[in-house]
Simulated assay, not measured.
Amino acid sequence: MALNLIKLCVGCESVEQLEDWIALRVREKMARGEPAEHFHTTRMVPKRVEELTGGGSLYWVIKGIVQCRQKLMDVRPFRDAEGISRCHLVLEPSLARTHFQPRRAFQGWRYLEAKDAPADIGGAGDDADMPLELRRELSELGLL
């Protein structure tokens, strides 16, 4: 069973804003002749890399709610210019929206077992077409 990560998407107001930011970063890399891959840099290096890269995702908490995920392709540890250990979480550039799941603030990232991760949105009768604010309010009330 795949293992996931969960992280706060600091400074991001919506899934659409995150999508726009990712697209911009990929376009900038392509313009510089770099590989068109997307990654997130983090200080701590996960220890359970094989479980994460075996089908895991990074779930994003936006404004206190898990709203989307990105498939985790690779984990690449490195040392920055100051000699500090960091890693790149290499992610698929496309986002998969998930059912809302409220989360309290935390620092860094956390492991997220598959059984605790919100399901993707996309099936018939799903709440994907519901207005964002309504989905948020119903989720906060425990009705979604």
Rank of each mutant, 00 (worst) to 15 (best):
M1P: 15
M1C: 05
A2W: 08
A2I: 07
L3C: 12
L5E: 02
L5R: 04
L5A: 04
K7S: 09
C9R: 08
G11F: 14
C12G: 00
E13K: 15
S14Q: 10
S14F: 11
S14H: 08
V15G: 04
V15R: 03
E16P: 01
Q17K: 14
E19S: 14
E19Y: 05
D20G: 13
W21D: 14
A23C: 09
L24P: 00
L24Q: 12
R27E: 12
R27D: 06
E28D: 11
K29N: 14
R32I: 00
R32S: 04
G33S: 10
E34Y: 11
P35G: 07
P35F: 01
E37P: 00
H38W: 15
H40S: 09
H40L: 13
R43S: 15
M44P: 00
M44E: 14
V45K: 10
P46K: 13
P46G: 08
K47Y: 03
K47P: 05
K47L: 11
E50C: 06
E50P: 12
L52G: 13
T53E: 07
T53N: 01
G54R: 09
G55T: 14
G56Y: 12
L58F: 02
L58I: 14
W60V: 10
W60Y: 13
V61E: 13
I62D: 10
I62Y: 11
I62L: 12
G64N: 11
I65A: 05
R69L: 03
R69C: 12
K71M: 02
D74T: 04
D74R: 14
V75A: 02
F78H: 05
D80Q: 10
A81Y: 10
E82L: 06
I84F: 11
S85I: 03
R86T: 07
L89V: 08
V90K: 05
V90M: 02
V90D: 00
L91A: 08
L91T: 09
P93L: 06
S94F: 03
S94I: 02
A96W: 00
T98V: 14
T98L: 03
H99N: 12
H99R: 15
F100E: 14
F100V: 00
Q101L: 14
Q101V: 00
Q101C: 11
Q101Y: 07
P102L: 01
P102H: 06
P102E: 03
R103V: 06
R103A: 11
G108W: 04
W109M: 04
W109K: 05
R110S: 07
R110Q: 15
R110E: 14
Y111Q: 10
L112F: 02
L112A: 10
A114V: 06
P118I: 05
A119Q: 12
I121R: 13
I121H: 02
G123A: 02
G123S: 05
A124P: 09
G125F: 07
A128T: 03
D129I: 06
D129C: 04
M130P: 00
P131I: 15
P131F: 14
E133T: 06
R135H: 07
S139V: 04
S139L: 01
L141P: 08
G142N: 08
L143V: 01
L143C: 03
